[in-house]
Each structure stands twice: as C-alpha cells, then as structure tokens.
Amino acid sequence: MPFDDETGLDLPREDANAPQRVARLRELGLYDTPDDGFDELAAKLAQDGASLAGIDYAPYAMVNFRTDRHQFFAGLHVPAELVPASDGDGVSRVMDLQHGYCPEVVGRGKALVLDDVCAHPRFESNEVVDLIGIRSYLGDVVHDPRTGIVLGTACIVDTDRRAWGRAGLKLIKDAVAQIEARIWEIGR
C-alpha cells in the first residue's frame, strides 16, 4: 500500500478496475443501498466468528463494497451499543477508502488474515486502530459471480487479538460463497 508522507496515511492501491466495479454495483443496486440479506449474512459471520474464537460477544462483521468514493457496508453487524442510530450516532455504513484493511484485500485479490494488526508495522498505523480499537482482521474478496469482477470484501474484525487460523480462513471463504450466491440472486 503506498504511503502519503504529507498526511501520514497509507493510501489505497491503484484501482484499475474501479470503473467496471462501480458500473456493476450500480447495475445491481448495491452501490450505496443497505441490504437486509447482507445484514443477516454479516450477523451470521459475526456469530460464527465469536464461536470460533470462543467468546461470548460478536465482533464486527461487514459485507463491504468498494465504490469510487468510499467503502460501503451493504451488510453490517456491530456491537449493540454501536448500532447506527437515526440521529447519526453509532457506526456508519461508509468508510474512507484509505481506512480499514478491506482496500488492501481488494488490491491483493486474496484473503488477508491479521491475528494482531499491531504486529505488522504496515497495518498498525491504519486509522481504524485508533478510531475503534481494531486489533484483528480476517477478510476475503467478494467477486461478482457473473463477471468475475472484484466488488468488495467480507470481513470480521475484533478489538482483541484473535488467532483465526485455518478455521478462520474457512469461515471467511464460506461467508464469501454465501454472499456471492446472494449477489447472483440479486443480479437475476
């Protein structure tokens, strides 16, 4: 990920597929519209991630589409105290392109497993570490099943370090398969 010395932020990788992705997201109606089905899949991912980690609460989970302006969480699960409220409090469904780890996953085109983001100098400086205390990340790319275009990611993040392991990788890949099946249905 390129680094901007002026702002002190990691910048997203050059995104040559943005025009095709944006056009497809608009065509599918997923550019900036929340989806109950994706919310349910994010909640299931959070629940399964909590079970995998042997914890009682569900961490954050998202179905994230990368647009030309921002990341958009069409599916979002957050701790109950941070549920988006009508008055603007809570976690937003929109995040800057340079924040979080999903832009890195889109650029790589493959899964990213960070058991401890602070153990990786490249990732510990990301804005979400300070904003919401993210310490672990597990994410993979979501493709459009019709065109093969990378549309975004599915991810699960936590405020504690987690050893995701092979079980975590299987968990995120299974979630991506369910998300892609939903995209297939939407695109019919």
Rank of each mutant, 00 (worst) to 15 (best):
S51M: 15
F72L: 00
F72H: 03
L45A: 14
L28R: 15
R66W: 04
L52C: 02
Q47M: 11
S92A: 15
A46H: 14
A80I: 04
L28M: 11
D87R: 04
D48T: 02
Y31A: 03
L82A: 05
D87L: 03
L30A: 05
R21F: 02
D35A: 11
E40W: 08
A43E: 15
H99Y: 14
V83L: 05
P19G: 09
A80H: 05
P79G: 10
V78L: 01
L97S: 06
H70E: 12
A42S: 14
A18M: 13
G75Q: 14
D87T: 03
D96Y: 09
G37E: 11
S86T: 09
L82G: 02
S51A: 15
Q47A: 12
G37C: 03
Q20S: 14
V63S: 08
A53V: 08
E81N: 14
D35H: 12
P84L: 01
D32S: 13
R21E: 09
S92L: 11
L45H: 08
P59W: 13
R26N: 13
G49I: 03
A80R: 05
D68A: 10
P19C: 07
L76M: 15
R66I: 10
R26A: 11
Y60N: 08
H70W: 09
A58F: 15
A43G: 11
S86P: 05
A50C: 07
S92P: 08
Q20D: 11
L25A: 08
V22D: 07
R24V: 02
I55S: 06
R24P: 09
G29Q: 03
T33Q: 12
R26C: 09
L41H: 07
L97M: 11
Y57G: 04
N64S: 12
V83A: 12
V78F: 00
V78E: 04
F65H: 06
D56Q: 13
R66H: 11
V105Q: 02
A42H: 04
P103C: 09
H70T: 00
N64D: 12
Y60K: 07
L28P: 13
V94G: 03
G37Y: 03
V83E: 09
D39R: 06
P59Y: 10
R69Q: 12
F72S: 01
G29P: 05
A53K: 12
D48M: 04
G100V: 07
G49N: 04
A46S: 13
F72Y: 12
Q98A: 12
T67P: 04
R26Y: 05
G54D: 06
L76T: 06
L82H: 06
A46V: 09
D32F: 14
E27I: 01
F72Q: 00
D32C: 02
A80W: 00
G37K: 06
D36Q: 12
H77V: 06
P103A: 07
L41D: 02
P19W: 07
G29K: 05
Y101W: 06
P103K: 01
A43P: 03
D68G: 02
T33K: 15
L30E: 03
V83P: 01
N64Y: 00
Y60M: 08
G37N: 11
